[in-house]
C-alpha cells in the first residue's frame, strides 16, 4: 500500500468519527428543541454539550482537510502555472498551514493541559470541559501529522492539493442521483 493510500484510510476513519459526531450534535439540538416545544423541558446542558462536541468534530475535520488540501484558498495563480511551479506553490502553501497548526497546537494545547483536570465546567450538570478540549487538541496533533504527510507527498511524489468546492467525478454524478 502506498503512503498516500494508507493515510487516506486512516483519515477516512477520523473523518467518519467526526462526521458522526456532527450528526449526533444535530440530533441533540433537535431533541432539545423538540423537548422544549412539546414537553417544556429541553435537554440539560444541550447548549454546552453541543458546542463542545461540535468543536471536537471541527478540529478532527481540520486534520482531514490538512491531508486532502480542500481548504478554501485562491487557486487562480496555481491554475495558470505549470506542474513544477505549482508544486512549489503547494509546498509554500502547506508550510504556511503547518506553521499555523503547530502554533495553534502549542498554545491551545498548553492552555488545555495546564487546566486539566479541573478548570471550567458546563452550566447545568457541571461536567468538566477538559475532556472535550483534550479531544480538540488531539485533533490538532493529528492535523500536524496529516499536514506533514501531505507536504511529503507533494515534495516526494508531486501529489497536489485538491481545489476546494470542485466535486470529484464520482461525487458529481452522485450528487442529485437518487
Amino acid at each position: 500500500m502506498t503512503p498516500s493510500r494508507l493515510t487516506e484510510r486512516v483519515i477516512t476513519v477520523v473523518e467518519r468519527v467526526a462526521a458522526v459526531m456532527l450528526g449526533l450534535v444535530t440530533l441533540l439540538v433537535f431533541v432539545s428543541a423538540l423537548g422544549r416545544y412539546l414537553f417544556a423541558s429541553p435537554v440539560p446542558d444541550a447548549f454546552d454539550l453541543s458546542r463542545l462536541a461540535l468543536a471536537v468534530a471541527i478540529m478532527w475535520g481540520f486534520a482531514s482537510l490538512g491531508f486532502r488540501g480542500n481548504h478554501i484558498k485562491v487557486d487562480i495563480l496555481a491554475e495558470m502555472l505549470g506542474a513544477k511551479a505549482r508544486r512549489v506553490l503547494d509546498l509554500i502553501a502547506w508550510l504556511g498551514l503547518l506553521l499555523f497548526t503547530i502554533l495553534l497546537t502549542w498554545k491551545l494545547g498548553g492552555r488545555v493541559l495546564s487546566q486539566m483536570p479541573g478548570g471550567e465546567t458546563t452550566m447545568d450538570l457541571r461536567l468538566p470541559h477538559w475532556p472535550f478540549l483534550a479531544c480538540v487538541v488531539a485533533g490538532l496533533v493529528m492535523a500536524i501529522v496529516t499536514t506533514l504527510i501531505r507536504l511529503w507527498l507533494v515534495l516526494r511524489y508531486g501529489e497536489g492539493l485538491e481545489p476546494h468546492e470542485t466535486l470529484k467525478q464520482d461525487e458529481a454524478h452522485g450528487a442529485g442521483h437518487e
Partner: peptide, 12 residues
C-alpha cells in the same frame, strides 16, 4: 495568492 488557505493566511 500562493494558495495558503485563506483562513490560515488571515490567522498568520
Amino acid at each position: 495568492i500562493v494558495r495558503v488557505p485563506i483562513g490560515v493566511a488571515m490567522g498568520l
